[in-house]
Each structure stands twice: as structure tokens, then as C-alpha cells.
Design a protein around this nucleic acid. Structure first.
Lengths: 315, 315
DNA sequence: TTGAAAGCGCTAACAT
DNA sequence: ATGTTAGCGCTTTCAA
């Protein structure tokens, strides 16, 4: 492993000049910079994060805090992979830490440079308490002034609804959960917006946010609608099962676009959440905040992925 | 943030004595140890991994190398979570790195303390080349002398088969993929072993290792068996679909025990792979190798989880 | 524009 | 059993 000293010796300068040439080129003569860079390249020099960390106080570690119960959520893994990729590109390593507790999170002050929080609330105690001590990044939306990235759920609600409208359906039910969670409210608002825009009356059914809820929601409808849009793929699985059992065949659109869309019968048209992108952008936003103090708030656009559970209406 | 110096001053000893009291108590007088420990506790002293790393060469980082294509595999996430938990308990942070390339892996020599390899082969070039330079841990079985943990797939094959035998079925087909992958061969061997033990003739059908393969395998059978055991849950999904379409009702057992078993209709009886435990034990085995050089080879036992896709035979 | 000295926090090697 | 010295690799003073 080559060190700055080795690079400096080969370039014929002092270690500090070599260091500056690589980190703070403005202070160094152009000729010197090229000499140093050539030497560094020749030796395959990679600065030691550890030594840098000791000097600068940076740990080069960021933590991804996930709720205990989400540990097995495959969609979260996609998000984590995006975070991981951004970390790698920026030289950070990633500590995945399953916890909800603020006290536990606080014990990491000084041991990590940043914390990524999932399941963020508008008024989030973790964001409030931690943001003073270290840089945080939030998946979702919160009132606190921290870097935050979310999926544009309003748009997602519109994408699913518009798809069914464009296929010629007018009696479209929206199946979701009653909840104070912003992301569900936004999806619903997107649906309502499109329906009203088309001069149609929204039909919204609330039930539990899983397969069984989707099934139950269908049974609670007075009559079968022309088409159904679900606030999650797992609810859509329940809807499909309901339809199967009754030999009904109407279009169904899900929301998430994950592994479930592949294994349903038929494969499920769904609003795909770009979790990988969200994870990556969020980590990048956090790094940006660390270096420049700049606070990014951003919405990432979901995308409708059409499979076989939707088709044009036949008159 | 308190340092050793602070602790040492409070305890009335030199920094090195404080350090030894905490890391190498054998060399220090018991009374001194208690003084130092009390001081450390009072100050909330946490040693700086960064500074330790600089001195000792340890980075306190381990890498989890996953194949690109596996990045979104929820089962792998369960494994990763286990690894992550062991890392945390031992003070390591975890770098998740999607790659198959040896060259890329080699670039991490000196930057991480250990690498966990998934998708290990019996003759694995990565294990061979890397084990000289850093500690590795392998998920699976390999001939090289590295810490390795695997699921006992032979036992898994037996668990699924025995379950169906005990329920009274004798004409049990095994649906799997033809492959040089050890884990598939072991599951098959477990099945064959139990069938022979019961004096029955094995019926094995090979097809692709996914939902479609499961479906296709069923069509290729001359007649419908009394029961089916699949080498994966996704194959079982295909089998269930085949049965649904033909209004057939025979018991089906899957293999993996993950998220799929919840969303099939009926919920799928399956051999559950303890991926979390494997991940955790593997990381621990790797840490043990780092500290003592001891090389652990271990099999973790899978467990049959009975749901509604199997029932006793009615005469 | 460049360099010399110093020190981040910790611990091995060498005293005592 | 304890302390002294020194240095891991890097970068922030301060000086030239």
C-alpha cells in the first residue's frame, strides 16, 4: 500500500505538497500537480480513509436505520442497495442498523458521519433530535430542515388512474388504507384529482394494507367496478384472488412494482416505485449536505409498468 | 468525546496502562483495572475505531459481496440482515458491494478486513485468490480452507419428503432443476434418500428454476402424482397455478419459506431456509477466523413450516 | 507556491 | 505491573 510519503518521494516534493496537490489543487503549482498525480497513478495510491478520518474527525461511515419489522421487506432492500451504491461511489461504508429507538440512534453520534432515516414522519422526533448532532437524510417528507427524498406519490396516483382512464374505463375504484401516512394520502389525492378532471365520481374503499385487505375491500363493494386501482401490490394480490374465485375479469393496477408483479396471474400492471433511485439520491443529498450544507428536498417520479392485468376496454 | 488520555488522567495512570486495562487486562493489576474501568464508565469512554485502525491496520469494515443479479433478491436481504447484525455486535461496519469480478474484489485488499462471498462454488476462484490476502467467509460449501456456513440442504430435502410420507402419500414427485449447483443436488439427494428408505421409487422432473419451470414440469409428467415437492417456492407457485387451472387438488411443498409462502393460495407449506441465522453465523465465523485463525465449517438446519398446501391423505 | 513541525487517538516495542 | 517513546498516514497550523 502506497502512502503519501511514497508519492511525494517519487514526485520529488514533500508529503504535504503531495497531499495538497491531490486534495486542494488551487494552492499548488500546475506542474507540481501533474507530477504528483502521475506519481500517485504510477503507485496506485489510494489515500487511507482511516488516517484521513483520524485527522479530520470524519468516520466515513453512514448508518441506515430501518425499523425492526421492515428488516425483511424486499422493497427496502432495493432502497438499501441504492444507498449502498452511492456510499461506495463516495468512499463511505454503510452500517445497516435495525432500530426505531432514539436513544440507540443517539449513541452513534461521533461514530458515524450521517444517518439515513426511513419511515419518516412529518413531525419526526428522530429528525428533530439528531439533526443538530449529525447529518441526516430522510426517506419521505418531514417538516424539519433536513435533506429528504420521497417518491412523488401524488403523481403515482395519477399515473395508475390515467392509465385506466385512457384504456376507456370510467367506473374505477381505488382500494387503499385509511391512515395518517402521507404517502397513502398522496396516492389517493392523485386518484381523486384524475377522476374529477375526467368528470367522474371517485369510489374509494378502505381496508387493511395487505392481501387480505384487498380481498375484503372487494367484498365490501356493492357492485364490481369496471376497473380497480390498488394502493399496493399486496392489496392487488387479494383483489386478483377475489376476481379469480368468481371468474370475473376486470383490469387491476397495483402500486409498488416489485417482485409481486411477476408472480401474479396475470402479471400485474403496477406503478413502480424507484426505490433504488430514491436510496441513491438520498445518500447523495446527504453527502451534499455534509460538504456544502445545502439541503436538498426532492421528489422522484414513479413509473407505470404495464403488464397483463390491464387491457383496453371493449365496447 | 472522551479519549484514553482523559480516562488515564481520571484514573491516575498513564494512557498506555489505561489502554491495556481495557484491551489486555492480563498485563495489568486488578486494582488498576477497576480504577480504569470506573473512569471509562464515568466519562462514557468509547475507543475510536478510527484511531485503533490507524495503529493496528484493522479497518473495522467487512464487505458483503453479492452478485449483481441478486441485488433485489429478498431472501438475500434476510441473509444480509443477519450479517449486519453480527457486524454491529462486533463493532464492524458493513459494506454491501454488488460485484462478481475478482479484480474488483482484489482492489479492496487493505481497505476491508474481510469479505463475505455468496454464491460460492466448490472450486471458487474468488475464494482461492482472496483468502491469502484477507479473511473471507463463504455462504455455501467450497473445497478451500475458509470459514463457510451452509444450509443443510440434504436435511431440507428429507424434511419435505418425510412430511409428505408421514401424511400418507407414496407417489411423490420431486420438481427441481438440473444443475451442477451443490445445493440443488443435496436437496435431491435428501428426497431420494427418504423415498428409498420408504421403499418407493423416486420421480424427479427437471425444469427451469422459476415459476415457469414449475408449471412446465407438471405438464411434462405423464400423470398427476399424489403429491409434489418442489426445490424452490417459485417453482411451487408454478405448480399451484397448474393445479388451479385444472381444478386439481394435491399437496404441494415448497423450498425457501420466504415471502412467497404467504401470498400463494393456499399458503404454501415449505422448507424454511434460515438465512438470517446463516448470515449471522457466517459473519461470526469470519470474526473468529480473524482473531484465532480457527476455521469453522458448519451446516445450519432448515425447518419445515406447515401451512395449508398440505394435508393428510384421505383413504 | 512550498515545506517543517506538530498532532489527531491509539497501541507496539522497548524500557523500568 | 507500569511508563516512555515513537509512529501508524494524514492534514492543519505556521513559517519561509
Amino acid at each position: 500500500m502506497a502512502t503519501v510519503k511514497d508519492v511525494a518521494r517519487l514526485a520529488g516534493v514533500s508529503p504535504i505538497t503531495a497531499s495538497r496537490a491531490l486534495n486542494n489543487p488551487a494552492l499548488v503549482h500546475p506542474d507540481t500537480i501533474s507530477k504528483v498525480k502521475a506519481a500517485a497513478k504510477q503507485l496506485g495510491y489510494q489515500p487511507s480513509r482511516v488516517a484521513q478520518g483520524l485527522r479530520t474527525g470524519q468516520t466515513w461511515i453512514v448508518m441506515l436505520s430501518v425499523k425492526q419489522k421492515d428488516t425483511y421487506d424486499p422493497l427496502l432492500f432495493e432502497f438499501a442497495t441504492g444507498v449502498s451504491e452511492a456510499c461506495r461511489e463516495n468512499g463511505y461504508s454503510l452500517l445497516i442498523y435495525p432500530t426505531d429507538g432514539i436513544a440507540e440512534l443517539e449513541s452513534f453520534i461521533g461514530k458515524v458521519d450521517g444517518v439515513i432515516l426511513t419511515d419518516i414522519k412529518d413531525h419526526d422526533a428522530r429528525a428533530e433530535r439528531l439533526s443538530a448532532e449529525l447529518t441526516i437524510g430522510a426517506f419521505g417528507q418531514t417538516q424539519y430542515d433536513v435533506p429528504q427524498i420521497d417518491v412523488d406519490n401524488m403523481l403515482g396516483g395519477q399515473l395508475g388512474t390515467r392509465h385506466l382512464l385512457m384504456l376507456g374505463y370510467r367506473d374505477i375504484a381505488f382500494i387503499t388504507s385509511s391512515s395518517d401516512l402521507l404517502f397513502l394520502q398522496h396516492r389517493e389525492q392523485g386518484y381523486v384529482h384524475c377522476m374529477k378532471e375526467a368528470g367522474l365520481k371517485p369510489t374509494i374503499v378502505y381496508n387493511s394494507f395487505d392481501m387480505h385487505g384487498g380481498y375484503a375491500a372487494m367484498t365490501s363493494l356493492e357492485r364490481t367496478p369496471e376497473a380497480v386501482f390498488c394502493a399496493s401490490d399486496s392489496m392487488a394480490v387479494g383483489v386478483l384472488r377475489y376476481l379469480h374465485e368468481r371468474n370475473l375479469r376486470i383490469p387491476v393496477v397495483g402500486y409498488d412494482g416489485g417482485y409481486l408483479t411477476e408472480i401474479t396471474d396475470p402479471p400485474l400492471t403496477s406503478v413502480k416505485q424507484p426505490f433504488f433511485t430514491v436510496g441513491k439520491r438520498l445518500a447523495e443529498a446527504m453527502f451534499e449536505c455534509m460538504s456544502s450544507g445545502n439541503i436538498v428536498r426532492e421528489l422522484v417520479e414513479p413509473e407505470l409498468v404495464v403488464k397483463d392485468s390491464t387491457w383496453p376496454r371493449i365496447e
